[in-house]
Design a protein around this nucleic acid. Structure first.
Lengths: 136, 136
DNA sequence: GTAGATGCAAAGTATTTGCGACAAG
DNA sequence: CTTGTCGCAAATACTTTGCATCTAC
């Protein structure tokens, strides 16, 4: 499991350089949703010579290869997350900035239905909920 | 109806300058979702002296006043739209770039339910569907 | 009259790119 | 070998801001 990004690279014919291996490793081990700056910071610990241009190039490449996915939450920088089988959406705690992942099949289904009704086949979607902790 | 942006400004204590009136007018008459460049272009026709800095300042001000809303669709620049009572979401035709507005109460309801289940009160949300025309 | 708005140009962010050196397959 | 990648610094794209001037209220 831990090497799956490297395996995906092989499968897609993406050349595996040392820098890409490091970025892959850092993303695999990140359970949050780092932005490029933060990713660069984490990667720099393992290889201080890596440049931020390479980080930008790599996340873009990985995104196009279906390895990472990019999120652009309201009023925030672009963040990245490893893309796995299980699709999920996000709820952002607007007070703490905490991001919670969730899955709701019913909503997924309805989205397809709505698209269909409008004459479209759904190829992608974005659902973000912004909330404040219930004070009950 | 046509002047409602100006009325909202009065109601919120937002000073009504000529530039703001023009920007309000252009947004009211736009049925699409212009980005700042496009808005600036449209506004320039009515007043060629207006600066793009003012357009940026004004859309931000109007957004904070609840007059406009900002969209950041995938891989696109920020776009603005007048905010009216009827909330709606968007379906983007990934081939033509066309944006279709829709309302689905069932999805809205489910979102609240999901947030609640996670212990949150929903304060905002973003739902974007990306689709291709059905070839039936 | 005064607080706040404007235009301009300069400064900030975030991201991309040209190029010569270098490394993976 | 050869094609593609890297690091660097410069370039780009979008947005914000300092300042002197001007305007709505």
């Amino acid at each position: 499991m831990k090497d799956s990004i490297e395996q995906k690279c092989l499968a897609k014919g993406v050349k595996l350089t040392d820098q890409r291996k490091i970025i892959a490793k850092v993303m695999s081990e990140s359970n949050d949703h780092p932005n490029v700056d933060e990713l660069y910071r984490r990667v720099s610990v393992l290889d201080s010579k890596i440049s931020i241009a390479t980080v930008y190039r790599t996340v873009k490449l990985f995104e196009e290869a279906g390895i990472l996915t990019k999120h652009e939450f309201k009023g925030d920088k672009a963040r990245y997350e490893e893309l796995n089988e299980g699709h999920h959406d996000h709820l952002i705690d607007v007070q703490s900035g905490k991001i919670i992942e969730f899955v709701d099949d019913e909503i997924e289904m309805l989205q397809k239905k709505v698209a269909k009704k409008l004459g479209y086949d759904l190829v992608d979607h974005k659902l973000e909920l912004y909330g404040v902790k219930k004070k009950s």
